[in-house]
């Protein structure tokens, strides 16, 4: 089942490292789960802000990705 969580913090990366330069600007967030654990993930689709609820989407470059609920 896809993991669900809330946005603990976020940023939009404008100056990207060489590997992701073509995707900038893109959003990165720390997602907090109900059990208190956290993960850093890419946000796909609509931008999120602190407190938004998100659900896991298909991973991006083998890193976790999340999408805003209801978007």
């Amino acid at each position: 089942m896809a993991r669900a969580g809330t946005v603990y913090t976020e940023t939009v990366v404008h100056a990207a490292p060489a590997a992701f330069a073509e995707e900038a600007p893109y959003q990165v967030a720390i997602i907090k789960f109900v059990d208190g654990s956290r993960t850093t993930a890419r946000i796909v689709g609509e931008r999120v802000t602190i407190g938004d609820t998100v659900t896991e989407a298909e991973s991006l470059h083998n890193a976790p990705a999340f999408r805003k609920d209801g978007a």
Partner: peptide
């Protein structure tokens, strides 16, 4: 293997700190 693979840079880690 975690935060950097997800696309974080140093400015973005401190950007997330600033936002919070």
């Amino acid at each position: 293997s975690g935060e950097i693979a997800a696309g974080s840079t140093f400015p973005s880690l401190f950007g997330m700190i600033a936002r919070r």
